[in-house]
Write a protein that binds this DNA or RNA. Structure first.
Lengths: 83, 83
DNA sequence: ACATATTATGGCCTATAGATCATACTGCTA
DNA sequence: TAGCAGTATGATCTATAGGCCATAATATGT
């Protein structure tokens, strides 16, 4: 998995994808991350804003990490919500 | 620039590094990002939590982006706050 | 179609982020 | 060493994130 993110919605999608890739329900992810299912739902759907702490709790539980890099040449295909 | 981040502090450092690489003062970054200098100071120093929206405002102004990826093999050297 | 699992929504409440102002601290450098 | 640019800190205020409960809406399987 490798997803570019330039806004909060991209993060939510990456989390949803990561969760599904690991075949976890929101409830299971909630249990192992300490973030509530309701909150996960909102984040995945880009409802409201999210704190970094919360994002990292989820990423850690999904064994994902963030890399900060110069804005690339990044092919459009690396994004998922073009439409 | 390419920095791994597994917690909010890593993000703050990446922002500070990116800002310095572009030879901007906090005040200048504040002006072009819409985030207050005081807030930038706190984020760079890992004081309190930060919302995604704010992080992305800063990253955009610094022409940086985020990539979400599986936790790597990431060499320890990619982190900056080991000590 | 029904039962059940999964996800979404919405309200209440508390904690806290960030705007904003004021001011203090920390280098520089003239 | 005085002055200034840059950064940090601290307070107040408003908006909102997320914990938490209840429940609604959607899948999914049988």
């Amino acid at each position: 998995m490798k997803t570019l993110a330039r806004n909060p919605k991209n993060i939510g999608q990456a989390i949803r994808n990561g969760r599904r890739a690991r075949k976890l329900t929101q409830k299971q992810l909630a249990e192992c991350s300490g973030v509530w299912q309701e909150t996960i739902s909102k984040i995945e759907n880009g409802v409201g804003d999210t704190k970094l702490e919360t994002v990292f709790s989820l990423l850690a539980a999904l064994d994902l990490e963030i890399q900060i890099q110069d804005r690339s040449k990044g092919s459009v295909a690396d994004f998922e919500d073009i439409f």
